[in-house]
Design a protein around this nucleic acid. Structure first.
Lengths: 202, 202
DNA sequence: CCCTTTCTGTGTCGATCGATACGGAAATCC
DNA sequence: GGATTTCCGTATCGATCGACACAGAAAGGG
């Protein structure tokens, strides 16, 4: 065990692709898809543009992979939140996780899934569509989780899971915008704590 | 009265600057500051780049003026909302106005003040800072209005106007993101109606 | 009428955009 | 130890970016 598989034929890669993807994710996160130029990206990744194209395809593919990395890294709180035993626990974990990720002292402020490509030129519609799908996927998972909470009796039977999921995701996206504006972590947390005192709001 | 002032010396402008600014505002609204190229802008405005520079200065100044136009046009609901007699009326008018403006069938989806320049390259930091200031100004006006509502006894004395304003603006910015993703007007309105059933939430 | 002023159309500027061609370097395969 | 494969460094591609030079056109002023 622990034995790495046989080295592939050819000259070995001179950089850590995982580390490079993390750097690229941060650049996209901070500057957005269109605001991140190839020069900015490759400088941060520490590689040449040739190496980037060989390893990741093109800018669009790099963005796609950076978003996957974001989903399983900074945004992993969502998957964990959905496993909370109660709907209120789910909502609390989602919003607290959103605040923590969007206001990290060591990272860019805001959410890659929101500010990565919210309004773009026609040339970048693929990146924008990708994030629309990403956000819609998040909403759907929350809605399904709240649907189960209704079935379980955790939420009142008259609760509309779709409406409730729309409410929580709207707060989450709004928090991402506030964080991008520089609003502090504590203030956002106080706001969420107060908002969740009434539950379910719908 | 009604007499227009004396024609200025020199060749008269061959286009309507007001109309051109409206067109530019729409382009910035739909594509964002960085996604709106000079070609896209001047094509929509129906003028040459020379005329644009002569009339508006440069791209950054054009964006600044387009944002002012947006504030007194599509976003004018905010000023009207602040004049509602009750805090609940203010919140309702703000969120309903946000939904109506960000989901117009004939206009771009979303809010210029949010998606105009949320994450940008360093070269466009001026546009981003402008929108940060714009959003912060909106928040401050709402907070001051809620402060008066507390003084008037419209809101309980233990209410924190800053927290409440942060809550309402967070919902508004979240709505802008949802609208940019294509979420429909009716669904957002149902969500807001349900959310405002509990008031004040904090 | 000519002069001044302002605006317009054409053409183009240097810089940067995303993306590659090409040759040499570094590994495995036989 | 050659052949093969893969990767890296340099240099550059055509397109587009925001911005402007220049000359002619259209108005008022004298």
């Amino acid at each position: 065990m622990g034995t790495r598989q046989r080295r592939p034929t050819g000259r070995p890669r001179g950089f850590d692709a995982d580390e490079a993807l993390d750097r690229a994710m941060r650049v996209f996160w901070e500057h957005g898809y269109e605001g991140a130029s190839l020069t900015t990206l490759t400088d941060a990744m520490g590689i040449s543009s040739t190496s980037m194209y060989a390893a990741f395809g093109n800018k669009e593919e790099l963005f796609r992979k950076a978003l996957e990395r974001y989903t399983e890294g900074p945004s992993a709180y969502l998957a964990r939140a959905l496993e909370e035993p109660t709907a209120l626990g789910v909502a609390t974990a989602i919003l607290t996780g959103t605040i923590r990720t969007t206001t990290r002292p060591t990272g860019p402020h805001g959410c890659l899934g929101v500010q990565g490509a919210l309004a773009t030129s026609d040339a970048s519609h693929a990146a924008r569509d990708l994030l629309v799908t990403w956000r819609d996927s998040g909403y759907s998972r929350v809605r399904e989780r709240f649907g189960r909470a209704v079935d379980d009796g955790d939420l009142p039977p008259e609760t509309d899971p779709a409406l409730l999921a729309r409410y929580v995701t709207t707060l989450a996206y709004g928090i991402a915008v506030q964080a991008a504006s520089g609003v502090g972590r504590d203030e956002l947390q106080d706001m969420v704590d107060a908002a969740l005192l009434t539950w379910p709001p719908c």
